[in-house]
């Protein structure tokens, strides 16, 4: 994980006061944040959080009710041509034109962006790198889902955009291909491209992204460096198996967050509940420990904490 890169000039993406409603559903409820040039940025949130809606607004596919977005300083509405030239977007849906060959489709897409033969070698390079070399002249409709996904990625990059947004590029993709895509995204980023990634695989976001925004119900919950996010919660997890199936003493039972078989997971505040105090408590109650392990919090714990649904009856 690299530290965020600082570069002069406008932010790669500037999202200001963006709201969008679909009928009575408020998909985006006033989003404000920037993504810096050269960042590898994670946009996370549960299903229906509004991630794809935001991406559609950035790419000009839908219009925001309020607020605006700038891509490298270009407003997506008033300066749409420059904004769109600067941006490459891989949509979440597996959409494609079934009537064209892979290479023709990519050359057509390049043409839409005003790029001619000069990018054909780049298109061939991408096909090789995405392991599509032998599908170059295959018809789109004859490709498997994973292959179509890779064509979609190449399609977003034909014009070598400085800002790339990938909406769940690794959804439904096998382990090997996922590694290929990770390598590909890392290389893009290393060459200076700003990469924005949405994913539901939190270990992927933790591994790849320098900074992360978590969106929920159309609102920004947090935007923070991945490291900062992980250090934010002074928790650690302790898993215990008690000998002879003994019960947890009452004052420790309230720290148990999950039970798997006879393994109990306790969530401990580093300050208030040092591990030693748990051991002491058990000893005092005369309970023997059969097995023990600890785990540092990962992004998933933080994600769950930030996006947890309030208990029924609780007004939030």
């Amino acid at each position: 994980m690299n530290t965020p890169t600082l570069r002069a000039g406008p932010p790669a993406l500037e999202i200001t006061g963006v709201r969008k409603a679909y009928g009575s559903v408020q998909a985006l409820n006033g989003l404000d944040f920037d993504i810096r040039q050269g960042e590898f940025f994670g946009l996370l949130g549960p299903n229906g959080a509004g991630k794809s809606t935001l991406i559609s607004i950035i790419s000009g596919l839908i219009r925001a009710d309020e607020g605006h977005v700038r891509v490298l300083g270009h407003d997506t509405v008033t300066d749409w041509r420059a904004a769109r030239r600067t941006l490459g977007v891989v949509p979440q849906e597996l959409v494609f034109d079934p009537f064209f060959k892979v290479v023709d489709l990519l050359r057509i897409q390049a043409g839409y962006y005003g790029c001619g033969r000069e990018v054909w070698p780049w298109i061939d390079e991408m096909l090789e790198r995405l392991e599509l070399g032998n599908k170059r002249t295959a018809m789109m409709r004859s490709l498997s889902g994973g292959m179509k996904r890779r064509v979609l990625i190449a399609q977003a990059l034909v014009h070598k955009p400085p800002v790339v947004i990938l909406d769940e590029p690794t959804a439904g993709v096998d382990v090997e291909l996922r590694r290929t895509l990770w390598r590909f995204m890392r290389d893009l980023h290393a060459k200076g491209t700003t990469v924005v990634l949405t994913t539901h695989y939190l270990e992927e976001a933790q591994e790849m992204c320098e900074r992360i925004a978590i969106v929920d119900k159309g609102r920004l919950r947090i935007v923070e460096t991945t490291e900062g996010l992980l250090n934010r919660h002074p928790f650690r997890f302790l898993t215990l198996k008690l000998a002879d199936g003994a019960a947890m003493p009452a004052h420790l039972a309230e720290l148990v967050t999950s039970v798997k078989g006879d393994a109990l997971e306790l969530k401990l505040d580093r300050e208030r509940h040092p591990i030693a105090s748990v051991f002491a408590g058990l000893k005092a109650a005369g309970i023997e420990i059969a097995d023990v392990s600890t785990r540092e919090p990962d992004l998933e714990d933080i994600f769950v904490e930030l996006t947890a649904k309030p208990a029924p009856g609780v007004v939030s």
Binding site: S59, G60, L61, R81, R84, V95, D97, Y112, Y113
Partner: peptide, 17 residues
């Protein structure tokens, strides 16, 4: 057809006026 297939997005995202 491109609306039903969804591939119209590639045209709508492009800098074509």
């Amino acid at each position: 057809q491109s609306k039903v297939n969804g591939n119209i997005v590639f045209l709508l995202m492009a800098p074509i006026g």
